[in-house]
Amino acid sequence: MSAAKNINITLKIWRQKDSKAKGNLETYTLNNVSTASSFLEMLDQLNEQLVNERKEPIAFDHDCREGICGMCSLYINGRAHGPDTGITTCQLHMRMFNDGDTIYVEPWRSRAFPVIKDLVVDRSAFDRIQQAGGFVSVNTSGNTIDANAIPIPKDDADKAFEAAACIGCGACVATCKNGSAMLFVGAKVSQYALLPQGKVEATQRVLNMVRQMDEEGFGNCTNTGACEIECPKGISLENIARMNREYLKASLK
């Protein structure tokens, strides 16, 4: 346990007016940052300073600030969600940094995630992949069979849950040297492939989701494993392998 102290930092932050403009890294200095602050609170503090100086504050995505909504992003000092593991940027705290540090803050970089402004990127490609097949085609009447009618082995249910824990933040794409979305898509495909309710449509699902993934312009998987390490929810590479299997099965049908 270390008591909170105040540090002074230099920030190099990507500024870009809109999707069409050319951006560049701007340098800012920020003093008296409490090490008990979260990284985003530090950015709040910088924005407050910018507003008070009548400068335009930095746009960045964030919402729940408790690591579950998946809205926050940021490539901090060369790592998705910054220099800590198993967390999102909103859970990163300034005690991970030292007085006098220079911190690089960049948006996710991917052709499929175009920059909207500053650090904000458009991740709707993920939504479109989900719309292509990330669901069970059951109507919403509630007149389905009883929830306990089909027992599901606990192991399968647990694995499906682990895959479903994905928050869709895009860190996997951001950190992959190829900008591949295989971990995201693999997690979704796996969740449904593991459950009896999802198996019915497994063939069409994996083909459609992969087709959409390719159309969005994500890169290919080189199995470097960086995505698994940077994933704030620890989604396993096993899910990518499972998708590869599912795709092979579907292709041979």
Partner: peptide, 10 residues
């Protein structure tokens, strides 16, 4: 019932 049918992993 609805959520299980949708693949919610309870």
């Amino acid at each position: 019932d609805q959520c299980v049918a949708q693949g919610v992993p309870f």
